Computed example of a mutant assay.
Amino acid sequence: MRAAAGLPAASHVVPHAVDPAPAPAHPAGLRATARLRATHNGRATTVPLLHSDGPFHLRRLRPRGEWARVCVLGAMSAPLGGDRLALDVTAEARTRLEVTAAAATIALRGPTADPATYDVRLTVDEDASLRWLPQPLISTRGSTVHQTYRVELTAGSRLLLREEQLLGRTAEPPGHLSTRLTVRRDGRPILDQHTVYGAPAPAWDGPAVLGDHRATGQFLLVGPGLDAPPAAVLLGDPVRGHCVLAPLADGPALLATAVAPTSARLRRLLDAALARVSGAEIRPGVRPGTPR
């Protein structure tokens, strides 16, 4: 029985490729897809489609200015081994949409050692803005999760996407976590990144990857008007964690990647990197993920 709960390597960039078809769900696993669609009615952004499913309960929040806001709440423990979970979010033309989460997502082994899949699909249409600001994904001992982000943008789309991972709870080794982020702009790939952490991945905790750090994450900022730094910017130090802010080759886009000993320190590094970006209309007025 699933208990009620809250939501939330080696690293390399790989050429764009078509992902293989997902494996079928284990008989003990859960298959669920939640859907969210925002549209503009000529005056403001509205959310006519809000379909909750499985562990995902989608709740409208009070709008803030021109931004419609939705929070993802956890209705049960997930992902567990064998689960096939998906979130499908579309921001139609001219909309302003922010999606947050109430709590971290905790990946657990569950009744089977089969991997769980967690697929997030984000579509941002012309002159639309999406802030995707979830809480961390926590990889616990014995869990196996394959997480994918598939993002489709147009030339006039604006996106702020943040993802964070915490490898193990206090004094606990992590499970096996792989994440893939694929971003296409006007049909052209601008980022295709694959990271893998936890045994049996080789060297994920070596000095060239995480070392002693157990929190890792990044934000991606895409959109017209970005004032990108001419070269990569390094923040932090070896003990308290590092963050690198760098422009992508096929912009306008910026990627900040950080590693840190704790999730709180990771968030501070990402916040500091975001504060260095000017000309970003999509940047929140408060720290990303902070309750409002």
Rank of each mutant, 00 (worst) to 15 (best):
G206V: 11
D227Q: 15
P229I: 06
V209C: 09
A208T: 12
I190K: 04
A228M: 02
Q193A: 11
F219D: 11
G236E: 07
V209A: 13
A232W: 01
V222M: 10
P229K: 04
V222Q: 02
G211Q: 05
G217D: 00
A232T: 02
D212A: 12
A208L: 15
Q193L: 09
P202H: 09
D212C: 03
D212H: 11
G206A: 15
P202G: 08
R214L: 08
T195V: 15
P224M: 08
A215Y: 05
A228S: 11
P202V: 07
Q218E: 05
P202C: 05
T195Y: 02
Q193R: 09
P230F: 02
P200G: 11
V222C: 15
L221H: 03
A215D: 03
P229V: 08
V196C: 12
D212W: 06
V209K: 07
L210I: 05
P189I: 02
G206H: 10
D227W: 00
Q193M: 02
D227A: 15
H213W: 03
L234A: 14
T216L: 13
R214E: 03
P230N: 04
P200V: 08
A208R: 12
F219V: 15
V196Y: 01
G225W: 01
H194D: 14
G198F: 04
L234C: 08
Q193I: 01
P200N: 09
G225H: 01
V233T: 12
G211P: 09
A203I: 06
V233M: 11
A231Y: 01
G236H: 06
A215R: 03
W204C: 13
V196N: 04
